[in-house]
């Protein structure tokens, strides 16, 4: 594993990945790891699923930055679930001093229009809010040392991040254009690193490769690959190939099982089937790891944890990242 991150300047960490790869869990663990040693980190959720609240076992997050965890060495993770409608009203107030007009707009169905019917606007608001958090200053200092975003899945990530640019392309001038340019400047800079979460299976690995290619094509900075739920080998490595193809000696296994006080005769068959499954999975993992290596990105690996994921699991995973040199 690498010992130092390749994105020393990154302050905005965008975490994407195929659905089902544990993107939210990894984003939360990354936020905890980055908070290690007394730093302030904001963890942002954009899909209104309240996944962060569930992970940290807190009530649903309102649209405000709330402390959800304390990291080792006095650091802290705050979380923000962006509510699109609230973000729009905030935006109107902040840039146009239009708070009351905002309320009137809502009555007219304009907010509905902006957040639901003109779907691109939604992503503009979300990325705009993220940029605001990244660049926010409090008393001359950065409000946050790092911002981690639990972003949309790989299939949608390029569209999500580049939406502002599309809008900027539409608006030849005016405030939206200025605003969009500001967002894209942050996203394209070395301040940003887009990390891709994957598991060691064919389709997620393929999507990881596709996402990296697409992000590079549109000039967005790819960070690292975060492999989640890597399974540990439970069989001796030199027995994997035979186990996978059902070539282990079932008579000898049955004898050993009986020796241990079990019904070896009837158990050997079923256990060998389960071992074959395990070994095939292990071999498939190896093949996926090899394909990821070809992508030539800094790669971190997180182990599969047994049992349901809770707040304790997050610290466990954060610890793995810290030990791998993420800070």
């Amino acid at each position: 594993m690498p010992t130092s991150p390749a994105w020393p300047a990154a302050r905005l960490h965008v975490v994407t990945g195929k659905g089902g790869t544990g993107k939210t869990t990894v984003a939360a663990a990354l936020a905890l790891a980055l908070a290690h040693g007394g730093r302030r980190v904001l963890l942002v959720e954009v899909e209104e699923r309240q996944g962060i609240a569930q992970l940290f076992d807190t009530p649903p997050l309102p649209y405000e930055e709330r402390r959800v965890a304390v990291a080792q060495g006095g650091g802290e993770v705050r979380a923000l679930a962006i509510d699109v409608e609230a973000a729009l009203l905030e935006y109107l107030e902040m840039f146009y001093n239009l708070k009351r007009a905002g309320r009137a707009l809502r009555r007219m169905g304009a907010v509905d229009f902006a957040t639901a019917i003109a779907p691109g606007l939604r992503d503009v608001l979300l990325t705009g809010k993220i940029k605001e958090a990244v660049t926010r200053q409090v008393k001359g200092a950065r409000a946050y040392d790092a911002v981690v975003v639990d972003a949309p899945p790989t299939g949608r990530i390029a569209r999500f991040l580049a939406v502002t640019e599309h809008v900027a392309g539409l608006a030849k001038g005016g405030p939206i254009k200025t605003q969009s340019d500001g967002v894209m400047a942050v996203l394209r800079s070395s301040q940003t690193a887009i990390h891709i979460v994957t598991v060691l299976e064919d389709m997620p690995v393929q999507e990881t490769a596709d996402a990296i290619a697409e992000l590079r094509r549109i000039g967005l900075p790819v960070g690292s690959i975060l492999v989640n739920m890597a399974r540990q080998p439970l069989l001796p490595l030199n027995a994997m190939a035979r186990a996978a193809t059902g070539r282990l000696d079932s008579t000898a296994i049955a004898a050993s099982l009986s020796h241990a006080g079990l019904d070896g005769e009837s158990l050997a068959g079923p256990l060998l089937l389960e071992a074959a499954d395990h070994a095939q999975g292990w071999q498939a993992q190896l093949a996926c790891r090899a394909r990821l290596k070809e992508l030539n990105r800094l790669t971190y690996e997180l182990p599969e944890l047994q049992g349901p994921i809770d707040t304790g699991s997050l610290y466990e995973l954060a610890d793995v990242l810290t030990r791998a040199g993420i800070r």
Partner: peptide, 12 residues
């Protein structure tokens, strides 16, 4: 074989 059987039991 005992070592192997033990690992099969852990897989299970």
């Amino acid at each position: 074989n005992d070592v192997l059987a033990a690992s099969l039991l852990l897989v299970h």
